[in-house]
Computed example of a mutant assay.
Amino acid sequence: MRFRLTDDQRALRDGLRGALTRRFDTAALRTVLEGAVTERAGGGSAAGDEGAAGGRCAVRAPRLDRELWRFLGDLGFFSLRVPEADGGVGLGLPEAVLLFEEAGRALLPGPLVATHLAAGAVPGAATGETVVAAVDGGLVEWLDEADVVRGDTTGAVPLRSADPLTPLHRVPAGQAAPDPAPDLVAVLLTAAEQLGTAGRVCALAAQHARAREQFGRPVGAFQAVAHLCAGILVRAETARAAVYAAAVTADPADIAAARILADEAAVRGARDCLQVHGGMGFTWESEVHLHLKRAWVRTQRAGGVTESEETLAAALAPETA
């Protein structure tokens, strides 16, 4: 079976990429980041580490850009899989995967998956007028900014998130109902976001390897750096094939495999991209470390990789009578 994008699917993907480039470019990402991180008197780095003068940076929960959220609603991001008869776009999982891949590539903040899944069921979710969050494995993303929360958040306490652009709350285990089996669409869309990160860090690594010079040569000419870039590319393209295939088949085992590969491609790809950049990749001005931090947070969603491993193992080695 061949999984090739149609002309309409390419136009959909390219259209969203172009729209996000105009509406949520690197400067806009930096604005959101600066709103979440403020420097205290006495110096210090914006990463929250102590500076030479003993200062520290305060990290506060970012505010969700409601105009951006409504912009996504106008584009049909949330209503993509809602039937046309109900006012939606009427497309399917393959198209949703393409859009969420672009969202991951752009580091788009907000409870995208929860709001997308609520479109058609929660008034205003499809148009971006309503922000929907959901309890997922005892964690809730963007709880304070949500208009509607699916699940019981009694006793939820804020956590210090690894990703400064993804505020988190934890629902105490003793006060939360047992988690149901993760929604397969949520698993797949999370994998698509991870794929977006994998693709972006691959591009960033290649760009830096070509542009940065040491000893009169691009660093990409050195074998160790070339091997890192090759590994990032191989993992990203392997994950892409798995995610796109799972979007077509919607088979639980295929979705589980896609999630495992996409998580690895995003996390290991971002880590290797940091290695290609050297110390520069860890600086607050770089977006590389933000991709790694977002990838870490996503690995906790929708049952995590362990749930997908169990699903895949059961499909590959079913119990025999």
Results as ranks from 00 to 15, higher is better:
R2C: 02
R4W: 11
D8N: 11
D14E: 15
G15E: 06
G15C: 08
L20M: 13
T21P: 01
T21I: 02
R30M: 14
L33T: 12
E34S: 10
G35M: 06
G35Y: 02
G35A: 11
A36P: 00
A36F: 03
A41N: 08
A47T: 14
D49S: 14
G55L: 13
C57A: 15
R60E: 12
R63T: 11
W69T: 06
W69V: 08
W69N: 04
L72K: 00
L72D: 04
F77I: 11
S79N: 02
S79L: 03
V82D: 01
P83N: 06
P83I: 09
A85N: 06
V89R: 01
G92I: 10
L93T: 10
L93S: 04
E95C: 10
L99Y: 04
F100Q: 02
A103R: 00
G110T: 09
G110C: 08
L112F: 09
V113S: 02
A118K: 07
A121Q: 11
V122H: 04
V122G: 02
P123I: 08
G124N: 03
G124C: 01
A133W: 04
V135Y: 02
G137Q: 00
L139C: 13
D144Q: 08
D147R: 01
V149N: 08
V149I: 15
D152C: 10
L159Q: 13
L168G: 01
L168R: 07
R170A: 15
A173Y: 08
A173L: 15
A173F: 07
A173C: 03
D179T: 13
D183W: 05
A186W: 04
A191S: 15
E193F: 08
A198W: 00
V201K: 08
C202M: 15
A205I: 00
Q207D: 15
A209F: 02
A211C: 12
V219F: 09
F222M: 11
Q223T: 14
V225K: 04
C229N: 11
A230F: 09
I232S: 05
L233G: 04
L233V: 15
R235G: 01
A242Q: 11
V243P: 05
A246K: 00
A247C: 10
A250S: 10
A250G: 02
D251Y: 03
D254I: 07
A256N: 06
A258E: 01
R259T: 07
R268I: 12
R268G: 05
L274E: 04
V276S: 08
G279N: 13
G279E: 11
F282C: 07
E285I: 14
S286H: 09
E287T: 14
R294I: 13
A295L: 15
Q300R: 14
A302L: 01
G303N: 02
T311F: 05
L316M: 14
